[in-house]
Design a protein around this nucleic acid. Structure first.
Ligand code: ZN
Ligand code: ZN
Ligand code: ZN
Ligand code: ZN
Lengths: 149, 149
DNA sequence: GAAATAAATGGGAAAGACTATCAATTCTGA
DNA sequence: TCAGAATTGATAGTCTTTCCCATTTATTTC
């Protein structure tokens, strides 16, 4: 769990700075309910409605930065744009089962997957940032529908 | 392993057709060496060089279609565009360890992950198409480099 | 096998997500 | 307090992917 000051420490370590925008973004994701994922646009609109807008440029820049730091996870839950969520360790770490037709997403947990991922990264000398099992499938209701594709 | 006629059967089942373009695309992916992944543009150029060009529209349409059918896998190996490879069953099925800085990708196998994915999909009544463990990390040489971000 | 029906292709235009640029602002450390 | 460096915000630009539609091709029917 990041606090403003632990985020600051980690940023400073790399010669970067803690800004109000970065702190706000971190807080949003930390308080997001389980199973909620935000796109850049979602976050932009959410902040605008809350009366503390952040420019889209800054949002895109920081979503990428925080993903590269391992603070956020970058998810492909729908076509055309990415979604983000906070990257949590073992008891909260989870994966996604996605319907490729309607994008209905189910989260599920499995500790052994994270362990295997960490082991694989270590074996190759890679520094682990995120480990996600993504299952592409067709949900029950989309199976019943006779719509094409 | 798909043949032209098994692909035709599967297409016809859904009211679709086997075209020379679809057959060509399937062949390309089936003959691709291990560890090679193609973007839409890669495939377009490859076919053009081979003297049997297919339009970009058709390529995009069919990469999507064949992914939705479970014949191809849609991978996020680099930012900005997708990569595709043939979707193979258990002994050949594999996953990806990706450096988020230089996109160096290592493939690795793990049968238990596919089993877990299949089990999860089944439990929720989803029809499985693809199951991929994606590990985002920083490779050894990028760890040594002092470049920002 | 020819005609009718429906699906697929190709080409170009369009959409839409993301990035680059740069002047103005803000943070940090001397 | 001041200089140097990083960050922001606004906008223009890039680039992948989708849309549109006339033409072509595959399948079905007679
Ligand atoms: Zn999630
Ligand atoms: Zn669905
Ligand atoms: Zn692969
Ligand atoms: Zn690297």
């Amino acid at each position: 769990m990041y606090t403003a000051s632990s985020l600051k420490a980690e940023l400073n370590e790399r010669g970067w700075r803690l800004t109000p925008q970065r702190e706000t973004i971190l807080q949003i994701f930390q308080n997001l309910p389980r199973g909620r994922h935000l796109s850049a646009e979602d976050l932009y609109n959410l902040l605008k409605e809350d009366g503390e807008p952040i420019s889209l440029s800054t949002i895109y820049r920081n979503l990428k930065l925080m993903s590269r730091m391992g603070i956020l996870r970058e998810l492909e839950l729908a076509e055309g744009h990415k979604h983000y969520e906070i990257n949590q360790p073992s008891p909260y770490h989870h994966h996604h089962l996605i319907c490729v037709r309607c994008n209905k997403t189910i989260e599920f947990k499995n500790d052994s997957i994270l362990k295997m991922g960490a082991k694989t990264a270590q074996k190759e000398g890679y520094h682990l940032l995120d480990c996600q099992l993504t299952i592409h499938a067709v949900c029950p209701s989309c199976q019943r529908s006779l719509l094409p594709a």
